[in-house]
Structures are given as structure tokens and as C-alpha cells.
Write a protein that binds this DNA or RNA. Structure first.
Lengths: 129, 129
DNA sequence: TATATTGTAATAGAAAAATAGAACACTAAG
DNA sequence: CTTAGTGTTCTATTTTTCTATTACAATATA
């Protein structure tokens, strides 16, 4: 997997798993791949995977059963809350950054719409929603 | 200055200066504060400032004159290009992240509009374009 | 000419993150 | 009981980033 070398890998692994949970690849109660397998898949060290998982276990997103595996929480409210938080964090980040680049509120929305429209143009074949 | 501890400080300093250039605080040809003063202002080490500036000098965004100071390029086309690049990078990042959170194109735009609207509600006094 | 201010460079050390490797603990299956 | 597969923990090493400190080079100014 390709990582942004400006952000800690363990942090990007957390995002990766969050996304899998939210797009349905890892539904509530699902068993994650074994930590050693995850390390192979992501081409990182087991300890780096473990660091990401440990934090997610602590926050209640995952549960761990020694000898069995790691599992996504059954608490769907927790997952929905998680998604809301992640979406809002990303919106706030994007808004602040674009605002710092001197775009007005209206320009921020317009530029996003233009970006999506251009993206469609260059991508007539790809699957999108 | 407050830095995000998930991103290298030298990298955040680059963003900081880019933003100053684009919002007009540092117009073309402007003299930057001395590196030692910048280090004090940002409460970081001179070498960290120097690393950020060195990269911006290499890419042509700044020019350096030993004994005089560091200056923003006079090349306005370069600056305009820089802004376009930064805006597009941020749009791409936000789009990809929100898409990974399972928002459709329409939902991405709608959620941004909602975010801005809510932000206005909670901020009737602040100056905003 | 002297002094202060500027950018530049180099060395050394501290801290965080990632890796490698080994060992330990629990569970399931033969 | 033995073995394989799981999570967990630990030590050691490397790399990157940041800091601290010092020194050097070029310019401006008194």
C-alpha cells in the first residue's frame, strides 16, 4: 500500500480501517485479517499494525480476543458516530485550508463543484457511486 | 504557533508562507522576516525554518540574498500557478477522503454546504469575506 | 574600518516512528 | 496432548525530524 510519508503510517492504517468499516467492507462484528496478514497486505511491520489496532481497541472501535482475532464493534451507534466525526473533521480541514488560500465560502463550493465536474469528464468509464 | 504533530513542522511552515503569499500578506517581491525572527515567531529552531525556506528557494518560490534577506519571487505567474496547484491538491484530498467515507458526489457537495451554513450560524459576529 | 544583521552550513544530540526478531499467552483443531 | 494460528509484549536498531550550538559568508551601516 502507498502511504503519505508526511503522516505516520500507524495513523494512516487507522484511517484505512475506518474507511473499510464505513464502506461496508468490514461490517459490525466482522473479523479483521490476522495482524500478521495485515502487515503483509500493507507491507509494514506487525508492530506498526498493532499500534494502530491498539488505539482503535482502546477507543472502543474494535474488540480483541486473544487466540481468536480482532473484530469490529457490534455497536452500530458507535460506528455511525465515528463516521459523522470523520466527515466533519475532513470538512473542517478542507474548509480551513481553502479559506486560507483566499477562497470565499461561495468560491469554495463552486471550486469543489468544478473539480467534481472536471473529474467526471476525465473519467467517463469509471464507476462512481 | 500551534502545529499538527502528525505532520512535519518544516512542511507546515511551507504551507504557512504559501498562505501568506496568497492572501496578500507577502506580495511578490516582499521581504520575509529574518530567519532568526521567524524562528522566534513560530517558536521553532532556525534550522527548521531554514529547511522550509531552502525547499521553497529550490522550487523558485523564494529568492535568497546573503546578508540581505529572503524575498518572495517577482514572478506572479509562478504564484498564480502555485495557488492553483494548492487548491487542486486540497480539493482532491477532500474529495477522496469524503468519497472513502461513502459519500456520493452530491452528498459531498451537500455536506460541505451544510457545514458552511452551520458554521455561519455559530459565528454571527466573525468576519467572513 | 568596525560592528551588526543577514543567510548558510555543520556538528551533535534528543525524540518519535518504523523495523526486525524473538518470545509469550490464549484458542481451536487434530 | 500437540500443533498451528491468533493477539501481545519486549528489546534493539534505523531513519526522520527537530533541537541546540557554533561557526562562517555576505551585506549594510555607523
Amino acid at each position: 500500500m502507498k502511504f503519505d510519508d508526511k503522516v505516520p503510517i500507524y495513523y494512516q492504517i487507522k484511517q484505512y480501517i475506518y474507511h473499510k468499516m464505513i464502506d461496508g467492507t468490514l461490517p459490525p462484528g466482522a473479523k479483521l485479517p490476522a495482524v500478521r496478514q495485515l502487515a503483509l497486505d500493507l507491507t509494514v511491520n506487525v508492530n506498526t499494525v498493532q499500534r494502530a489496532l491498539s488505539e482503535m481497541i482502546t477507543e472502543g472501535t474494535l474488540t480483541s480476543q486473544r487466540g481468536k482475532g480482532n473484530f469490529v464493534t457490534e455497536d452500530q451507534a458507535h460506528i455511525m458516530q465515528l463516521r459523522t466525526t470523520l466527515v466533519n473533521e475532513q470538512l473542517a480541514l478542507a474548509y480551513d485550508q481553502l479559506h486560507a488560500l483566499n477562497l470565499s465560502d461561495a468560491e469554495i463550493v463552486a471550486s469543489l463543484q468544478q473539480y467534481i465536474a472536471q473529474r467526471e469528464e476525465h473519467n467517463h468509464d469509471s464507476i462512481d457511486d
